[in-house]
């Protein structure tokens, strides 16, 4: 039997393989989520009194989504990978954990000769182009059409790449549950990552996220991103204040307005594990996406080189 493959067969086979994938329903299922489709939240932190109603409401509403790990946990190999267990510390509410997706950062800051008590509800920023979703190596996270970044606990292996690439290190791991237990529990994965899903299920039913509904001070407002940005600028102008979240990481769907500059707030707040900063954040996905132009140009250069050689040889 001849192992020679004709060009026609080669092209047919290669193009068929590429075509099958490219023409599959994946591009058809893709959607444009920019701008109008995204829902954003505006947080007027001058109103927040740190009553904790939002934190409590978040916890009550999301109880059914919280992890219920199996114990004992698998012994991790190599030992550098550590099991993470928050299941015995479910009541911790002064930082983000797999059982606490929202907490309040409180601080005192002096600004314009006045001391301000500032309370900042902190949770996932729901970036407009979320690295946690786009860079998950297993596609275990999804950005919904309304902009919510969501981790699927049935698919997440708990490798925590989402946390590593998140500019605010928001997702938190719980070991002892998830798909990794069915694959190579000692050697790959380490649980499931958890973070705010902005009550996607309530929003789908036309309700508001629990934290917004429970707030007695109306700190948060939710709406189409363009409207929220307009409101944020109007509010900032009115209070001679500052905005955070509009441009950070290329834009987020969580817009804070504060009477105190965010660099002062960032210096004043307690930061660290489970306690995100308020620094300026560059667009983390931009460098890669800017390089995409090279991916379009490179084949053209390759074809030009081949055609150039062809003319040289046939002259």
């Amino acid at each position: 039997m001849s192992h020679q493959i004709s060009r026609r067969l080669f092209l047919k086979g290669g193009l068929a393989a590429a075509g099958t994938l490219a023409a599959s329903s994946i591009p058809a299922a893709a959607s444009i989520t920019d701008g109008t489709g995204h829902l954003a939240t505006l947080l007027d932190i001058s109103k927040c009194i740190a009553c904790g109603a939002c934190v409590e409401a978040c916890s009550e509403t999301n109880q059914s989504k919280y992890p219920e790990p199996e114990k004992p946990f698998p012994k991790m190999v190599p030992s550098r990978a550590k099991n993470v267990d928050w299941s015995e510390k479910r009541d911790v509410d002064d930082r983000l954990t797999p059982y606490n997706w929202l907490y309040i950062q409180s601080t005192y800051v002096e600004h314009n000769g006045e001391e301000h008590e500032v309370n900042i509800p902190r949770r996932c920023m729901h970036c407009t182009n979320p690295p946690c979703v786009k860079l998950c190596p297993f596609g275990a996270a999804e950005q919904l059409k309304n902009g919510i970044a969501l981790i699927n606990d049935n698919l997440c292996l708990g490798g925590a790449k989402c946390k590593t690439v998140c500019p605010w290190k928001i997702p938190e791991r719980q070991s002892g549950l998830g798909i990794y237990l069915d694959i190579l529990p000692k050697f790959a994965g380490n649980g499931v990552m958890y973070k705010c899903d902005r009550c996607y299920d309530r929003i789908a039913q036309g309700e508001q996220p629990a934290c917004i509904e429970a707030c007695p001070e109306d700190v948060q407002t939710i709406g189409p991103r363009d409207d929220i940005i307009r409101q944020a600028h109007a509010l900032a102008k009115e209070m001679n204040g500052y905005i955070y979240g509009e441009k950070e990481n290329g834009g987020t769907n969580t817009i804070y307005v504060s009477p105190v500059p965010f660099d002062k707030l960032n210096k004043a707040i307690e930061k660290g594990k489970g306690k995100p900063h308020l620094k300026p954040v560059k667009d983390h996905m931009a460098d890669g996406n800017n390089l995409a132009a090279a991916l379009a140009i490179a084949p053209i250069a390759g074809i030009a080189a081949a055609v150039g050689k062809f003319y040289k040889m046939t002259k």
Binding site: A17, A18, G19, L21, A22, S25, I26, P27, A29, A30, S31, I32, T33, D34, G35, T128, N129, K134, L135, C136, P137, F138, G139, A140, A141, E142, Q143, L144, K145, N152, L155, G250, G251, M285, G288, N289, A292, L295
Partner: peptide
């Protein structure tokens, strides 16, 4: 083919359903 679709996926404003992204990556 899968690589180029993943490049498109990474652009701001493009969202694939979870099943599609997972299928492409795998």
């Amino acid at each position: 083919a899968t690589g180029l679709l993943l490049v498109i996926y990474n652009f701001s404003g493009v969202a694939f359903p979870m099943w599609a992204a997972a299928t492409l990556l795998v």
